[in-house]
């Protein structure tokens, strides 16, 4: 018990929480933007993989880290466009299309990586984002290490939570987007184009997802390897439900989840005699439990997963 307290009082745990939460924050925001407009995007796992690969490759080929993030976002936009054409324009099954995008994004990433990068015994590495030193704040006791010694993309993720929340709640664009997810016919009646709004939302959301993937290769690690996304995308899909489709709650969910993950990682090294796989299972089990607890009360966007065809009811 005292061991658990020691872990919780250690600033490095809280630094790890923010680090682990960052890709989830990007991913859950992306999924949220898509779903608020009425489109489930199960392509997330493949889009994150593509973002991780595209961002890493850009830097490996001599681009700077911010260009890497930009290229990752562009790759996300393209996969998002593909998902949008299939599900919004053609009105195909969002479940099957999303899974197809995931299989496509992941396999294409692995293929291109193998094609363009010589892999020896160890995967090649890049120089990743370093923790920012913020004068004054980073020197604070405890908080300095726990909160103010993160890499730049982490602060970007936190900023994007605020931006997304503001756009959704306070701007005409956000209102139109939310309305498209609730009642696209009403949007049409207002003289707006629900199809265009959905395409835009899916593309923007997919770009956010890809940034989450790029964080893995450009900040959390320094190399790309297959299966590195490890179900983080699926966890984001669960977190959106947990967050009742609200950006603020999504941030909270990602942080809670990351706290749990960071905590179990540290317990693994202090508790002996328990197979490590049980610790690794915990995040997935937690996601399922969170879904079961919240799903009943969750207010799902009314038109989620319903294709919209003009003049068809």
């Amino acid at each position: 018990m005292t061991e658990a307290f020691d872990i919780l009082l250690n600033a490095s745990l809280w630094a790890a929480v923010l680090r682990i939460a960052t890709p989830l924050i990007f991913g859950v925001l992306g999924a949220l933007v898509c779903e608020r407009a009425g489109v489930l995007n199960l392509g997330i796992e493949g889009i994150m993989t593509m973002g991780a690969m595209a961002g890493w490759l850009t830097v490996y080929w001599g681009g700077d880290l911010w260009t890497g993030l930009l290229v990752a976002a562009l790759a996300g936009l393209l996969l998002g466009l593909l998902h949008a054409v299939l599900t919004v324009v053609l009105g195909l099954s969002q479940h099957v299309s999303g899974l197809g995008i995931t299989l496509f994004g992941a396999s294409l990433s692995y293929y291109l990586y193998r094609l363009w990068v010589q892999v020896g015994d160890l995967p090649p590495t890049i120089e990743p984002f370093q923790p920012l030193h913020i004068p004054g704040l980073s020197d604070l006791p405890f908080l300095g290490e726990a909160v103010f010694s993160q890499t730049a993309p982490t602060y970007l993720a936190l900023l994007l939570v605020a931006v997304t929340a503001w756009v959704l709640a306070r701007t005409p664009l956000g209102l139109a987007l939310r309305m498209t997810g609730e009642n696209p016919h009403a949007v049409e009646a207002q003289g707006l184009n629900p199809v265009a709004i959905r395409i835009g939302a899916v593309m923007a959301g997919s770009a956010l997802m890809a940034l989450g993937g790029a964080f893995l290769t450009l900040a959390a690690f320094n190399s790309f390897f297959p299966t590195m996304v490890q179900g983080r995308g699926w966890i984001c899909i669960a977190l959106v439900v947990f967050a009742s489709w609200r950006p603020g709650k999504a941030l909270l969910g990602a942080l809670l989840f990351a706290l749990f993950d960071a905590f179990q990682l540290r317990l693994q090294t202090t508790v002996e005699g328990v197979p490590y796989q049980l610790f690794l299972m915990a995040p997935y089990v937690l996601s399922i439990l969170a879904l079961v607890l919240v799903a009943r009360r969750a207010r799902v966007p009314e038109a989620l997963m319903q294709p919209y065809r003009r003049g068809e009811r």
Partner: peptide, 29 residues
């Protein structure tokens, strides 16, 4: 879980894949 609580089975079955493979690892080690 879908019938009782309205939980999307896509997410739960996907997450279970990871859990099961870890469990297989635990058993074969």
């Amino acid at each position: 879980m879908r019938l009782r609580f309205g939980v999307d089975e896509v997410v739960t079955t996907l997450l279970l894949n990871f859990i099961v493979i870890l469990f297989v690892g635990l058993m074969v080690e």
